[in-house]
Design a protein around this nucleic acid. Sequence first.
DNA 1: AACAAGACCTGTAAGC
DNA 2: TGCTTACAGGTCTTGT
Length: 273
Amino acid sequence: MPELPEVETVRGGLEKILAKDPVIEEVILNRPDIRFVIPKDLPFILRGQKVTGVRRRAKYLLIDTARGSLLNHLGMTGSWRVVNPGEEDVHDHCYILLGSGQRLAFRDPRRFGLLDLVRPGEELTHPRLQHLGVEPLDVEAFTGGLLFLLSRRRKIAVKAFIMDQRIVVGVGNIYASEALFRAKIRPARAAGRVTQAEYLRLAEACRTVLLASIAAGGSSISDYRQASGESGSFQNAHQVYDREDEPCRVCSTKIKARVIGGRSTFWCPQCQS
DNA sequence: AACAAGACCTGTAAGC
DNA sequence: TGCTTACAGGTCTTGT
């Protein structure tokens, strides 16, 4: 479900809730291992803490307190919502009881998500965070020149290259196809054979497509919801993703689809070279 | 070292 | 209708 725009939208929703209702009365873990083992002392450490901020790094959410941050990855199907009595779900793996009596739930049917504690000062050394690449919305750090440099002599498909979270973070399967369409680059090309001029277009395309999607509240496919329960609308603006055999919105050529790097990939054979 | 493929899970939709 | 199969927004691990 969630790539950078969806995670950023969820971040904004949680921030809105937690700014008004910032005290964590209790953390209840219904499942000690969603995907990895959650530290046993996490509920104890966060109990009674005041949330000082909600941040995003890559596709991770960080709910900050003075004693550490709750680290969360949504995996494929993770979501947060305010759950009222009677609205509980078997896949609610974590509840956070807030000062007002509201209850936040982390629901994740496929359990590809993650909850962990990042202790103060551990942010740069935490195993899930330490190898992450640049933020694509950081204009200074994320440039076509950087992509060009990091990709030299690499034979991996350019689409898999920009989905590699050690290179650039936040770009997942939908936005990789969408950005490559906007940059007019075929996804199967070897990363090392893409030119600097093309990478300049690609960096710009990543930025613009991610920003446009954030503005639309993300792409809602299947079960993705914002923390407010609303759907995003960016799926309506997809140019190629999940549009196999449909006409290109620019030139009317049939959109092609093929598995690249183990993931479904979509492109226009006319617009992209 | 770099890359591809498999593994981890459940839910849903399509095909027979 | 019911069973089987394929596939889904991610990323970690294993094998070549």
